[in-house]
Computed example of a mutant assay.
Amino acid sequence: MASSSSQNKPSVGILSIGDMGMGVGRLLRHHDYTVQHTLDRIKSSRITTLASDEELVAEVDILLSIVPPRDAVATARRALEACQSAAAIQRRAEGKGSAAPRLTYVDLNAISPRTARTIGALFSTPKSPSSPAQLSITRSFSFHRRESELDPQAISIDFLDGGIIGSPPALREDKSWKRPSIVISGPKHDELLDASLRDVLNVRIVGEAIGPASALKSCFAALSKGTIALSILSFTTAHTCGVLPALKEHLEEFNPALLAFARGGLASMPPKAYRWVDEMRQINETFSVEGGFSPDILGDGHGDGHHHHHADGPDITGQVFEGIADVYKLIADDTVLGEEKTEKRKRGTNLDDVVECVRDGIARKKNKAEGEGELDATWRGNWS
């Protein structure tokens, strides 16, 4: 039963519950919003769990997507398919009545403006509900459908572009909330998100179109996470060369703010590195497509590098943030730091241990590559 203070507030769904989604959910629950999700992990936070995407889109008014960047488009497709489900359409109509409001889908992921526009286009294309053959085989059917069951309309969706700048919401000892900035852009934003919800979430409107919010998030993250990646390169190389203490000494004297940022950034980075790989690629696309720093402007334009771009879009190979993506991929895939979890830290909790782990990971990867090269040469020799 909803409390009197929550009865007139929109119900909010979250896909999916990581550290940021958990923090946002707790913040909303603290302010008497009904918050729903499909994972058991969040029961202790008084967030309602639902069994499926279909139940989620049937129950909520606003759906927040907070997932790793690589999953942003797939998550949007999941929501769209759920909104086309006859079961979800019927449940929503029964629960909210014939005047049920349109579902508002807010993408809060670290993606490029181009990816945000791609997601927006998914929701703007008219779709029909799923046919019975596409629905669960556990549903029973009648040869004589009631009039109310004929040609149901898919749940309508409004889309807003967004991004989260800052760390997850957290309740301070004085019971006030430390909140990140949630940047939003898109048409009808003031209608889709009421003033009370915008205030609770610390929403800042940055534009009327789809794209500006993602652009702002990309530009901010490029400076913060890009600097952390450069710190990994610099401090690890200094450690390998035996001059790490001297580097820290000089930074302490000439740039103490940078040293403090590097210490904090490197210590907090390991559990997030896997998420940042695709975020750096999205930043790369933002700079290339939106900023104009395309291969024909930077470099020779021959495309001799990595390929992470839309099939129908411009080639954005060999760019700066592709290299930074590779730094975080090294951390996630080839060092013990990639095994770290936010709630249970073991390694990389300080600058010195981070660079030691990175150096060891580089050495192991080189030894593995050399071993595979020798094995390949042996096989070629045996069969030549």
Rank of each mutant, 00 (worst) to 15 (best):
residue 70 R to D: 00
residue 128 S to K: 14
residue 60 V to Y: 05
residue 112 S to V: 01
residue 77 R to G: 04
residue 75 T to E: 01
residue 133 A to M: 10
residue 125 T to H: 13
residue 127 K to Q: 13
residue 109 N to D: 01
residue 99 A to P: 05
residue 107 D to K: 04
residue 99 A to K: 13
residue 117 R to Y: 04
residue 132 P to F: 09
residue 130 S to T: 11
residue 112 S to I: 01
residue 110 A to E: 05
residue 108 L to M: 15
residue 103 L to Q: 08
residue 77 R to K: 15
residue 88 A to M: 04
residue 96 K to F: 13
residue 90 Q to F: 09
residue 86 A to S: 15
residue 110 A to I: 05
residue 103 L to D: 05
residue 104 T to I: 08
residue 114 R to M: 09
residue 74 A to D: 00
residue 93 A to C: 07
residue 81 E to S: 11
residue 120 G to Y: 04
residue 58 A to K: 12
residue 107 D to S: 01
residue 88 A to E: 09
residue 125 T to Y: 07
residue 69 P to T: 07
residue 61 D to I: 08
residue 100 A to T: 12
residue 62 I to Y: 14
residue 114 R to C: 06
residue 76 A to V: 01
residue 105 Y to G: 05
residue 107 D to I: 03
residue 60 V to H: 06
residue 121 A to S: 14
residue 96 K to E: 11
residue 78 R to Q: 11
residue 122 L to Q: 07
residue 87 A to Y: 14
residue 71 D to V: 02
residue 109 N to V: 04
residue 123 F to R: 07
residue 134 Q to P: 00
residue 101 P to H: 15
residue 94 E to Q: 15
residue 99 A to Q: 12
residue 90 Q to I: 06
residue 135 L to D: 04
residue 64 L to Q: 14
residue 61 D to Q: 12
residue 105 Y to P: 01
residue 130 S to K: 15
residue 136 S to H: 11
residue 79 A to V: 08
residue 117 R to D: 00
residue 100 A to L: 09
residue 94 E to W: 12
residue 107 D to G: 00
residue 63 L to G: 08
residue 81 E to R: 14
residue 92 R to Q: 06
residue 94 E to R: 13
residue 69 P to R: 08
residue 61 D to K: 06
residue 111 I to Q: 03
residue 75 T to Y: 02
residue 94 E to M: 13
residue 60 V to R: 13
residue 112 S to A: 06
residue 124 S to D: 05
residue 103 L to K: 05
residue 115 T to D: 01
residue 61 D to H: 15
residue 109 N to S: 03
residue 91 R to F: 13
residue 71 D to P: 04
residue 127 K to A: 14
residue 118 T to R: 05
residue 71 D to Q: 10
